[in-house]
Amino acid sequence: MASSIRVRATANGGTTEVQALIQHPMDTGLVKDAQGQLIPAHFIQQLSFEHGGKTVFLADWGPAVAKDPYLKFSFKGAAKGDELKIGWTDNKGASDSTTARIG
C-alpha cells in the first residue's frame, strides 16, 4: 500500500523547509453519515519528524485539524541528502511512517 504520508523537504542555506501532506479522514465523531449514524472519531493524535536521531518537530492533534492534514515548518542543522523520518499514530492505534530524503 502506498504510504499515507507525502513529504517534501528542501534544504536551503542551512534551513530545511518541510511540507507534509497526510491522507487521513480526521473524523471528529460528531458528523453523521448518509444513514444518520454517527461516524466514530478517527483522527491522528501525534505526528513526529526525526532527523539524525533527534525529534525536530512534534505535533499533537485533535479532531479539529482538517481532513488530509497539511503541515509546514522549518528546522536548522540538516544537509541535502540527509534522511527525515516521519511517523504518525491515531486514536485507534493505527500508525504509519516513512523516510524522506532532504533535497
Binding site: 518537530f57 485533535g62 528546522f75
Partner: peptide, 12 residues
C-alpha cells in the same frame, strides 16, 4: 484546542 506543536531547539 485544535493543535499543539512542540518546537525543539534548532527548529524555526
Amino acid at each position: 484546542l485544535a493543535a499543539s506543536y512542540r518546537i525543539p531547539e534548532g527548529t524555526v
